[in-house]
Design a binder for these strands. Structure first.
Lengths: 191, 191
DNA sequence: AGTGATTGATTGACTCGTCAATCAAGAAAC
DNA sequence: GTTTCTTGATTGACGAGTCAATCAATCACT
């Protein structure tokens, strides 16, 4: 293993470990040592690569959002009609990659992080704006000028389902979650 | 100042200060000293009355839920038809007492707390079960055996609206929030 | 009414542990 | 032999919880 390839590997390992540890602890009260330990490195190395604990959290958050973004884009690629596009976004929200216990738990805590860290808030706002923009664009041909409020409702509903899943002891049911939201969509379109 | 009236006054002050401080900090990372300071007492006294920091948080959470429960009950008192009952619950969710910046911020953090503290989780589950039971009961005459899923959707939507409000920089708009949820209700009933 | 005992209220000072961050130095690669 | 990687050790700060002591009201008894 060549020396110069270590950095990306370590960063990825630390980011992954961060998500796992945050999920395990159920809060952001995890020590750098715990994260580093899980990643199989020393806490000093984590500081070496990220500079601070906050930066580690931001990187983890960015990773979650990146994965989610990629899933949305992938789902949109095969969608033709507006209806299909909206459905693609909804399904991507509950895809196998993002709708997992550890990611959901991390998600909730990133919301809390966004309350105190401007950088985290920026990331979250960016993601939200993109999602809404995507939704509104696809909804326009379906519901006209109600697109904005329907998008707002869909967004809130998705967030709510996530939130409730975070607290539920059971493992997430992607199918049921998607169905609940798509149901809402159908009603709005029919109205 | 009569001796025996000190305890309830102090407890209430500390609980109130806890909610304010959690909201101000945007997280549970507030020190007992900060809370006590805001309540105008020493940190030792807070420990004297509550025993631990966790117990302080639980008391604050219980208070929020109690206020909310009272608001729901009050709203239900003047509701006759099933439709009115559901609307009362929804409106109570966004009532002036509960849908305030500080309370919303505290709410979000209590969700996080519930991930780690069994007692907090118990409280939250209890509140949720009651709310859903209330909803299902009133929805039954309106939507029949779809009552359960509609209640689930309403609950998730309410949670989602709260969550988004926690992150929004603006002050909460009770009217718009209630309208969004009631809209969902109308669609479901019409279907 | 006076006086001493009792009890709750309250605090400042202290302990003990924890943790983020730094540093200096060793190991590995090139 | 220089650069990158990696760590153990250390530090400095901070915070929860404890404790011994003070203060003030109430009580019990005369």
């Amino acid at each position: 293993m060549p020396r110069h390839s270590a950095e990306p590997i370590r960063r990825a390992a630390i980011v992954k470990a961060t998500i796992q540890e945050v999920a395990r602890a159920g809060s952001l009260e995890v020590t750098v040592a715990q994260i580093a330990g899980k990643a199989g490195v020393s806490s000093a190395l984590a500081h070496h690569y990220f500079g601070s604990k906050e930066a580690i959290f931001v990187a983890a958050m960015r990773h979650v959002l990146t994965v989610f973004g990629a899933e949305v884009r992938g789902a949109l690629a095969t969608a033709d009609s507006p209806r299909e596009r909206v459905e693609a976004i909804v399904r991507a929200s509950f895809s196998a990659g993002s709708f997992r216990r550890e990611v959901i738990a991390a998600w909730l805590n990133f919301y809390v992080l966004a309350q105190t860290m401007p950088e985290a808030r920026r990331l979250l706002s960016l993601y939200r704006r993109r999602l809404k923009s995507n939704l509104v664009h696809s909804l326009r041909p379906m519901v006209g000028d109600r697109a904005d409020q329907v998008a707002e409702g869909l967004g809130a509903l998705i967030d709510g389902v996530y939130l409730r899943q975070a607290l539920a002891g059971t493992s997430p049911d992607r199918q049921a979650a998607a169905q609940l939201v798509l149901n809402y969509l159908s009603r709005e379109v029919a109205a």
